[in-house]
Each structure stands twice: as structure tokens, then as C-alpha cells.
Simulated scan of single mutants.
Amino acid sequence: MTVLVTGGAGYIGSHMVHALVDSGERVVVLDNLSTGFAWALPAAATLVEGDTGDEVLVSRLIAEHAVEAIVHFAASIVVPDSVADPLGYYRNNTVNSRNVIACAVKGGVKRFVFSSTAAVYGNPDAVPVAEDAPLSPMSPYGSSKLMTEIMLRDAGLAHGLGHVILRYFNVAGADPQARTGQSTRNATHLIKVAVETALGLREKMAVFGTDYPTPDGTCVRDYIHVADLIAAHMDALRHLRGGGASATLNCGYGHGFSVLEVIETVKRVAGVDFPVELAPRRPGDPAAIVASSEKARALLGWQPRFDDLDTIVAHALAWQRKISAEGR
């Protein structure tokens, strides 16, 4: 039996593929390589270049590879881009996800792990935010993910599709073995941008908004190491295989850092100073969002190992130095 990983050549997806292969799983990856890289995958994984919206292709992969579980990462993820191109985001994130879910049901797949986001909460009334908090996304990105959550729950009730929805907070860092990491050019992730600036790949970086109702006026986020996030996915897959009930779970550490605190950490860990420009707020950015992750720990037995901002930054720096040296 095989695990199908959509978007498996991307930043988070490629970490999942490595973890699955490390565990002896058979893995087939479906990725259109718009933001992913074939070289980020282990040799033991089968890569099929294609689109999650291609019903014939997805159905064929499920049948030919005897897929018994799907881990669905493929999506567009940049909040400001979603504000500028909402229909593109609803097509890629919602319509295409509907196709993957439908193919899973048609193909008899009974286990589905979905990559969702803390953006479904919008600007929460209180932090840390629990899974039962009001859902009020501030961007088409958040809305597109919430729509997929609703479809997946409905399909689960109607067709017995066991699923775990994981709501990511801010994912950062890289594989501790330096096999994969955040490699997308012109990425917008804060730690990635700060690391590139520290290494001279950008002249300067911007802080978007300094007048938020936070201690230093900049946005506060819960940064989770990508390896710990992938551990939660592996735990979710084990949970479903063991007959566990469907669930929606936050993935974060339960404490946050401001944009300025992250930048200062990157400067200190990298041992260099770099210019930072203060800029206006971006549309769609909540002031502060931090996870309550007790449910994931209790239900899945999830035990994070890299809950340390210095470690997250150090791994991100090591990966950026590696791919820069390799010309990637």
C-alpha cells in the first residue's frame, strides 16, 4: 500500500516525503513543480508531475499505486497574493482540493491528512487560540482552506473518509539533516526572508506594520519547526491507521514571538547586522495568533523536539547556506 503526497516536492511536503521514506513507506508524490523541486525528494519516492485538479490523473494514481492514505499539501499559500487573486486561490486551494477528496472517496481511500492553517481563525479574540474558537478568516487564503475543511468533514460523514485536519501556525526551519528546506525563490516567510538578508542575498528586509496592539507594535506569531510539524503528520497517520476518530488539531508551540524579536534572533544567531525597513501593514495580517496545541499532544501523543527559536533559525541558516553554495 502507498501514501500519496500532494505538493510533496514543496517546502513542507518534501519533509513529509523524507519522513515517510525513512519509516519504510511507499510514497508517490503529485506535484506540478510550480514552487517545488524534484531534487528535494528522496530517490525512493515516485514523483509524478501533474495537477491536483486533474481528476483522471489523481484517480489513476490512486488505483495504480494502491493508495491507502493521502496527505494533501498542494496549495497556494501567500496571504497578500490571495487578496489580489482570490479566484485563483479558490481554484487551486478549494476546487482542486474538492477533486482530490472526490477521487479519494471514489478510489476507496479511507485515510486523509489535510494541511490547513491558523489563518482560518482570522484575528482571534484571545490567544492562545483553541480549535473551537470562532472561525473568521481575514483573507481568501484562509477562506479557501476553511472551505476545504468543511468539504472534508462532510465527505467524512457521508463516505467514511477518516481524516485529520492540521491547522499550521508559522512553519520555519529546515530538515536537521539538511536534506530539504525552504528553497522557493522570493519566498515571503519571515525567517526565510531574514536569513536571506543576513546572508547578503537581499539588500534589506521590510517589517509590515508597527502599530499593532502588541508589546512592540509588530505582529506576533507562533513559529513551529518544520520537523515537529511533520512529526504531527506522522502521528496523525498512525492515529487514523489505528482506527482513531477524525479530528481537527492545531500545530504550534503555544507561545509567540514578534517580527522584531525574530529579526533580532536571526541577527544574533547569524552574527551579522542588516538593514530593516519599516513599512505599512499588509492586508490580511492579524495582529497576534498563537496556538493552543494541548489537543494534538493528548490525542496524537505528539511530542515536539525543536521548540526553540534559536534552533529553528540555525537550521534555516544552515539550509540557506547549503543551497546558496550549490547555486540553487
Rank of each mutant, 00 (worst) to 15 (best):
residue 158 A to M: 10
residue 293 S to M: 02
residue 67 V to L: 06
residue 84 A to P: 00
residue 164 V to M: 05
residue 285 D to H: 12
residue 158 A to K: 13
residue 57 L to W: 10
residue 318 A to S: 11
residue 323 I to L: 12
residue 273 D to H: 08
residue 114 F to N: 06
residue 316 A to T: 13
residue 18 H to G: 09
residue 203 E to Y: 00
residue 171 V to P: 01
residue 71 V to K: 00
residue 92 N to D: 09
residue 18 H to N: 05
residue 237 L to Q: 03
residue 77 I to G: 00
residue 91 R to C: 00
residue 224 I to Y: 02
residue 64 E to R: 13
residue 85 D to W: 03
residue 4 L to T: 00
residue 35 T to A: 14
residue 212 Y to M: 15
residue 302 W to D: 08
residue 235 D to W: 00
residue 313 V to N: 13
residue 148 T to Y: 02
residue 228 D to K: 03
residue 296 A to Q: 03
residue 52 T to A: 13
residue 302 W to T: 04
residue 212 Y to P: 01
residue 233 H to C: 15
residue 194 A to L: 09
residue 268 R to C: 04
residue 312 I to S: 11
residue 217 G to P: 09
residue 244 G to Q: 08
residue 296 A to P: 10
residue 301 G to H: 06
residue 34 S to C: 03
residue 148 T to S: 14
residue 211 D to W: 04
residue 231 A to E: 14
residue 167 R to K: 08
residue 147 M to W: 07
residue 187 A to H: 14
residue 117 T to L: 03
residue 235 D to A: 15
residue 37 F to E: 15
residue 217 G to W: 02
residue 103 C to R: 13
residue 307 D to M: 12
residue 35 T to H: 05
residue 279 A to I: 01
residue 279 A to T: 04
residue 107 G to R: 01
residue 28 V to M: 08
residue 304 P to M: 07
residue 203 E to K: 14
residue 249 L to H: 08
residue 99 N to P: 00
residue 253 Y to I: 09
